[in-house]
Structures are given as C-alpha cells and as structure tokens.
Write a protein that binds this DNA or RNA. Structure first.
Lengths: 253, 253
DNA sequence: ACGCATTTGTTCGTATGTATT
DNA sequence: TAATACATACGAACAAATGCG
C-alpha cells in the first residue's frame, strides 16, 4: 500500500493523533489541499480516479471521503462534470447563511448600505470570540439591509485584521454579490459553518432611528460566529432584524 | 429479482411513478415499513444481510439505503448491535427540536405546567396548516415551561383530533419525558422534521402576565409546523420565549 | 446529429476489521 | 471464545450525464 496510508507492516506514523480509517485520512488530505488553496472555490478538483492514484487507494475509498466532504458542503458533485469546490457565489450556498425571508412574495435580494468600515483594536468580547489577542487589530463593519427601500437589518461585523488587510468601504460597496463571496474571492477566507444565538430585544434609541422603528420596538437579535476550515472562528456578527414583514426561517431535521 | 425492483429483462413496471435507483426503491420500502409500524421506535430493524435477502439485492445496496435514512435521522446505526428506529426518548434526538439554551450553565430540563388541553374545531389558519378540513376537530394544548421556577416559554399547540383520540391534560401531566416521546409511544405519531418561522414580538397583556414580564416586553415568537413520514403535517405550535437569560441556538452548516 | 471519451452514479461481490453480546 | 452486526476497503462492471469533435 502507499506511503501515506497506514499499513499493517509499517504502523509507525508517529505524528498522527490516533488511528483512523483510510477514508478519513484521505478526507483530511483533501481538506488540507482545500485549505492551502491548491483547488480554489468554483474550480473542479481532480477526478476520483486521479485522486485514487495520487493517494494510492481504491476509487471507492476516495469516493467515501468525497461523499462526506460533499455532505458537509465543502464540495459539490456534478455527475458527468466533476467535483467542485463549493463557493458562496452560488445561490444554494447563500441561502444556508441568509435566513430572513419576506412574509409574502419570493426571496428577495435586499439592497445594501454600508454605514461604516474601520479598523480598531478588538474589544475583549470580540477578541475572545475570534480567538485573537486582546487589543489586536480588527475590521469593524456596520451596514444596513433594505427591502423595498425600508431598512430591515442592521449588521455589526467584526473580522480579524490580519486576514482582511486592505478591506475598505469602497471594496465592499463596489462588490456585487454576497459579502462572503467577496471574502473568499479577495481574501481567501471561506466561511464553512456558523453558530447563532437568537433573542428578542427592544430597540435602543440609535438603532430605532436607523431601522425607522419606535424606540423599544421588538427586534430579533442574531449573534453569529462563523468558522472556516479547521473550525477557526473568523467572523463575529451581530444583526438586528425588524421582523414585522419578514421572518427568520429555520428547518429542524 | 423481486417484484418491485426494475429489471433489465422486464422493464414493464407499470405502477411506478418513474425510474429510480435500486437503493432508492429499497429506501422507500424501508420507510414504508417504518410508517406502518412493522418496526417500532427504539427497536432494531433486521440486519443488513437479512434485508438484502428479503429484497433480493446485495448488502451494499441495502447499506446505501440505510445510510441515507440514518442521515435523515430516521434510523440510528450502532456498530456491533444493529440498526435502530430513532426515538424521541433519546437525548440526541430531543436536542434537534429543543433549541432554547440557558446563557449560563448546562442545558436544563425545564419544568412543565399544562394550562389547558381541549378539543375544538380548527380555526381556518390551523386547518390550512395541518391540511385538515376547515372546522374539523383538533386538540389544543397550552403549556408553560419554567426554568428555576420562573416561566420562560408559553406554547400553544394544535394537533389533528383524528390522530390523537384520548389525549387529555392528565395523560400529558402524567408522562415523564418529552412530549414527542408521548406522541410516538401512545399515538404512533413520530415527528420527523419541522419548519420554523421566528420573529420578535411584543408581549400582549395576558401573555405578559403568564410569563411574568412587562406588557410589550420583547419575546421570541417561534411558529413551528412539524411533519411525520411522507411530509404529512401533524403539529402546529406557536411558542413565545422569554430570552433575557436564554437564547435560541442555531447551527448553520 | 452522432458518437466517443470523461466523470460521477449505481450495483454487485468479496474479504477483513471492529464492536457487542 | 465464538457468533453476530455494522464498518472499512478493494475490485469490477455498467448506467447516466456531460462536453467535445
């Protein structure tokens, strides 16, 4: 068997944390290539046959590894065409992270208005969440989303400054398409999954003004921590949603 | 080859809606057995080998069918023991439907207090959601969930009366464990998945009194429609959550 | 329009490993 | 220890979708 895979005659793979099935090892090798940028979002990865040859395992073993990566939404399989690196430029992917739906009518692409984009030292709470040193540089973005001209979402976003050098309000405004698409295309940071904590809160005065609601009006507070490869947190976001004609959709399954 | 599966020499399977892969056909046969109650929640289903013999296909094909059913949380595989019908009596399953977490401390089992359980004709909105005829009998339940003695959740639940004959406040109060566990054990109705619509609302006067908050206080409104086998809606639930020391957890992946 | 090569999808068979009883 | 059941791994063949010449 190949050099990479475990072997009954040569079990001395000192570095590995523990035993794991072959397909899991292949899976982590593929993940590493994704992480390193060997294959970029939207591109195809090598065919199953090629990967099998490269890793010196059977096609079925590669297949099982890819199956799991596809189930985790890191890869997308397309019969007859190949296997592609998932990208936030695709509609399907966007709806995984965009949960606010209008009460009536089809899902809408809301207008964006960037209110602020500055660099500042991370507050304690932010640095803790993003796992950067306290006081380290972060990018802070504030934006409004509007539906039919009326404000619906106020987002405050924090990003680690080290990963997003050169991010400005102009870059944000100029980019068409989802913000996560910009992040992956321009900064090589791909959001894989996120945890959210949702509450109902009353609007404070400045927020009420921005969202054009009465002070104290009930708003949905959505606190999101997003992760990239290797479960590294790379975005903290706090959104306030005005839900009188929109709702947050969730599917329990 | 069985009577149901397609065959290259005998493609005349008139009844089937369309062609589908063998393992999909096996999957739907297994689903049918689950639905009919041939294997009950918590029990094992026959081994892969036995099922392969029963359906006249290879073990690998049965395996792929079961893989998908396990991914959909209808079955649970346990190496060395067998494959089990999923049940709401298990902790893992419960947390798929129980999203409210305390800000501090471990997940808690909240106390329940049933305020009401009556039979009445379905209001238009309810009958539409549950897909029963307008005015048909439904069961309506109202309950409070308490954490450390303080009310946190007010639930209003509607069920199709035809499926839940004999459901009373006493049955509900007497049953230890999750309500969905009662439903599956006593009424043979298993909740498979659910759609939720979440908003922020202000507490009206009666609600404020029950939840011991000020009138107009922001509450999370969670409207849930739950489905059983075959995507049949069997529960409509509207919850109001007091989120000053709890939050609704969601994972985007 | 047709056929061919490529790629993923399905199905079978077999052998061996690991967990449970 | 032995039997059982799921898990992993390999190999092989054909089907279906796609794109190219």
């Amino acid at each position: 068997m190949g050099a990479t895979a475990s072997s009954s005659t040569d079990p001395a793979d000192a570095s590995a944390p523990a035993f794991s099935p072959l397909y899991q090892q292949i899976k982590s090798l593929i993940t590493r290539s994704l992480q390193s940028g060997e294959w970029k979002p939207g591109e195809t990865i090598p065919s199953e046959i090629e990967l099998a040859a490269r890793f010196r395992v059977s096609q079925g073993t590669v297949r099982k590894a890819i199956d799991e990566l596809a189930a985790e939404n890191l890869l997308v399989r397309r019969q007859g065409k190949g296997t592609f690196v998932a990208t936030h430029a695709e509609a399907r992917v966007q709806y995984r992270f965009l949960r606010l739906m209008p009460d009536a009518g089809p899902p809408e692409g809301m207008q964006r208005r960037f209110l602020d984009c500055r660099r500042l030292r991370a507050p304690a709470e932010v640095s803790r969440a993003l796992e950067v040193k306290s006081g380290e540089a972060t990018v802070q973005i504030r934006r409004l989303l509007l539906s039919k001209g009326r404000p619906v979402v106020l987002d405050d976003i924090w990003l680690p400054g080290a990963l997003f050098k050169g991010l400005t309000a102009e870059r944000l405004s100029g980019y068409q398409g989802p913000m996560y698409g910009l992040f992956e295309a321009e900064f090589g940071v791909r959001m894989i999954r996120a945890d959210e904590k949702i509450r109902a809160v009353g609007a404070d005065a400045p927020t009420a003004k921005l969202l054009e609601v009465a002070s104290g009006a009930p708003l949905l507070s959505v606190e999101r921590l997003s992760f990239t490869y290797g479960d590294r947190p790379v975005e903290l976001r706090r959104g306030l949603y005005e839900t009188s004609s929109h709702y947050y959709r969730n599917e329990l399954s």
